[in-house]
């Protein structure tokens, strides 16, 4: 189901918590599984439920509560743009307009070639560096402008 590398990472997370509290590692396990698989398919949730000794519905509750988990397939590049107040004041609307025009998709959509998915995000906790775009959940791109966003997207092709 998951590679040994992913399982080893999950085991490292499990070790952080008291032995009878394996469930604490579910968020990390979901993240690690999603990183490997691209998204969280039902089989993946079932596998993790067994791995962590949790009811599957409890795993699903967690996976559906936190924004960064994808319960449906996403493009190879998932771009999440914060549109909250500070970023808005700092000009994110123009950046979003540029990205949308360039990719030809709106928020919540994936390009036909499956390369890009665009999502609207809530505050990343990095407003001072906004506008911001989070690439595949883990890499934060800062201080975007309508001008530099071109190069940013080109770099992902």
């Amino acid at each position: 189901m998951l590679t040994n590398e992913s399982l080893a990472q999950i085991d490292r997370e499990i070790a952080k918590y008291p032995a009878e509290q394996k469930q604490s590692a579910v968020m990390s396990a979901l993240r690690i599984a999603q990183q490997e698989k691209g998204w969280l398919a039902p089989e993946t949730l079932e596998f993790l439920a067994t791995y962590l000794g949790m009811p599957t519905i409890a795993v699903y509750e967690v996976a559906s509560f936190y924004n960064m988990y994808d319960l449906k397939p996403v493009g190879a590049h998932k771009l999440t743009v914060c549109t909250n107040i500070s970023c808005q004041l700092q000009g994110v609307d123009a950046v979003v307009a540029k990205i949308q025009a360039k990719l030809g998709i709106g928020f919540g959509e994936t390009t036909a070639d499956g390369r890009f998915t665009l999502k609207e995000g809530e505050c990343f906790g990095a407003c001072g560096d906004g506008p911001l775009c989070l690439h595949n959940n883990h890499t934060l791109h800062t201080r975007l402008t309508p001008d530099n966003v071109d190069a940013f997207l080109e770099g992902m092709k």
Binding site: K22, M27, R31
Partner: peptide, 22 residues
């Protein structure tokens, strides 16, 4: 412990629930 996108987890008891894997 890494969050994964839920503002409410900043509230201290939500944060505890989240560490507990809920």
């Amino acid at each position: 412990h890494h969050g994964y996108g839920a503002y409410v987890c900043g509230e201290e008891t939500a944060l505890l629930e989240s560490i507990e894997g809920k």
